[in-house]
Design a protein around this nucleic acid. Structure first.
Lengths: 345, 345
DNA sequence: TGTTAGCACTCATACCAAACGAGTGCTAAA
DNA sequence: TTTAGCACTCGTTTGGTATGAGTGCTAACA
């Protein structure tokens, strides 16, 4: 990339056009640019340059004799070459830190909170997924009787993530459950969750010989339960922001986005497709999903202890404040990394 | 109620008008009625009756020389006297039964699933709350070390609801935690959550004399934690249906509803206000919330073991199929009652 | 006395042409 | 190479008219 066949002045003009369009949502004309931006050239000159920029594919004209709007390619150039990512303010940082480090203990709450912050600071839709649980190490474990037929399995990782899984079983004496879970813990503590497979559980049987039948019974249930940990949990917040965006003022258009995001099936695939780069910006057709052609997504990946990872996604109209959103995504991504990695005391 | 100063024929005409308006969303005129509905009178007669019905407050005229639309009072009469609630089909029943009785064990999943069904069958917004936790009896309790400074308090009710609360404390030896939680359980088991106050916890101290300082330390933390249980958990589904409703085609209007529903604060109050009757229908201004003036809500209460209760709410435009929605709400409400009460299977 | 036909009137909506104006492309002069 | 000027385009606004759905009222009718 980097090497665009385009003059410095053209770049400046493109920048002005896109900035203005992001502000006003209106096709922008040469006169507007020459008046509002101190480029030192007349509207006629700008007019010529705009014609060239259109020919190069950076601009589009909704109809003859209207102003220009950026094409996806134009946005791409803008994002690559022109957006400057200022760091977010100290106040925002403080809020984010306090909201994410304060009294949140469950992974799902943390993700939800992060999504909320993200959508509030950007006024856009935010989605945060929970890191795959199975790369973390087991730190604590309990089996708790919930009813005569149900048991709650609680897993705590060394990173402080808590996860509970309901098991359906008809063998629910709390005394036995305590013995089993104590033994399991002493046996599995420090193991990564993904390594807790049937084979390792089988060894448990030796340690609990007097409870052999119970363990036999428990193993397939545990196996199922651990499998259910593989799904990606995600939290979306700020959907209603879509309704405030001019591009989606027509509720038909808003509905397209809503319906896409509601369909979990879609979302799962969508999230998988989303780049696993540290930070990725996809604009309109680059997303490759027709119903999101009018949108851009900015996504990032956060790592937990450098291993398992979760995703952060902001979805908005192409006409968004890229610099601002990128900086917020970055900051929250990093914070989330830290918090999940257990650096939080 | 029951005794409306209104003739049989006026009732018939009102019914025809409201039915037609629910179908078409257009103000309905006298001629439409005389043609579409076999009332055996001419449009002129209907015209006269409509004028009377307007004077009585059952109809409104958006502007002179347009057709009539029902007033809130008109809808009220319609709902009270004219809607007939047919039972829902056997197919629907089967779907609901299988979705709610099948492999769901967590209260929150159950509520979520019920809300989903409700919104899918009605094409409207559905909200389902989980029965208030603090009227349930304590069935199980554990303290689990999460990190050196964090402990998880897990509460299980006799109705099978699981709740975990984070405690920040620097006294986190799992062996001690086990002893304390075992004693607490033996001591508090069967007590309703709301009765677990400081006084009852104080008695715990006697039972754990050798851990006196620990209990001193624990009590204020527990007190805080229990306070945080008072919130009502609720699940809303089908928000996007709003966007398909003519009344809210303007995304400004849709946003009003969205914003109201998103604000948890609002929702909490709103849910408290919602009638605790077995079944309640509120129309427009009857709701008493300005931003919902264009809506009706149909709500019901389901009981768990005749004690604690949860709410079921369907929110839609006043122009909704009341008969259908009522029957679905009723059926799901009853099913939910059953499932929650007999959750141990 | 209740019902109906007829008619004048209202008023939101559709329609259409003209005026407007923001913006362009092109040309010619600086 | 830049700029001023100008003719042209085309979506939007404007205003005036027609349309028609619907009303209220009156008078005739059963």
């Amino acid at each position: 990339m980097g090497d665009y066949m385009i003059s410095e002045r053209q770049l400046r003009i493109l920048e002005a056009i896109i900035s203005d369009f992001i502000d006003t949502a209106q096709p922008v004309g040469s006169r507007t640019i020459s008046k509002k931006y101190p480029l030192g050239v007349s509207s006629a000159t700008i007019r010529n340059e705009m014609a060239d920029l259109e020919e190069l594919g950076y601009l589009e004209q909704p109809h003859t004799s209207s102003g220009r709007i950026p094409s996806d390619l134009g946005y791409r150039l803008y994002v690559d070459a022109l957006v400057n990512v200022h760091s977010i303010g100290i106040d925002e940082k403080e809020i984010i830190q306090s909201m994410l480090r304060n009294r949140i203990i469950e992974a799902s709450d943390l993700a939800k909170q992060a999504a909320k912050l993200l959508s509030e600071f950007t006024n856009l839709v935010a989605i945060v997924t929970i890191p795959k649980f199975n790369k973390c190490k087991l730190a604590n474990l309990k089996l708790i009787k919930v009813s005569d037929t149900r048991v709650l399995l609680i897993l705590v990782t060394d990173t402080g993530i808590v996860k509970n899984i309901q098991l359906a079983m008809s063998y629910t004496d709390q005394f036995i459950l305590d013995r089993v879970s104590d033994t399991m813990l002493s046996f599995l503590s420090g193991e990564t969750i993904e390594n807790i497979d049937v084979r390792s559980i089988l060894k448990l049987k030796h340690k609990l010989q007097n409870l052999g039948t119970f363990v036999d019974y428990l193993i397939p249930i545990l196996k199922d339960a651990l499998k259910s940990l593989n799904g990606t949990e995600q939290y979306a917040e700020g959907l209603s922001h879509i309704l405030s965006i001019q591009e989606f003022a027509d509720s038909e258009k808003a509905k397209v986005i809503f319906d896409f995001l509601r369909d979990a099936q879609n979302l799962e695939i969508f999230l998988d497709e989303v780049s696993t780069d540290q930070l990725s910006i996809k604009i309109g057709s680059e997303i490759g999903i027709e119903s999101l052609d009018a949108c851009s997504i900015i996504s990032s990946t956060y790592k937990v202890d450098g291993k398992s990872d979760g995703k952060i996604i902001v979805l908005g109209p192409k006409r968004m404040d890229y610099g601002n959103v990128v900086s917020i995504v970055n900051y929250i991504s990093n914070t989330l990394s830290d918090v999940f990695s257990g650096i939080n005391l």
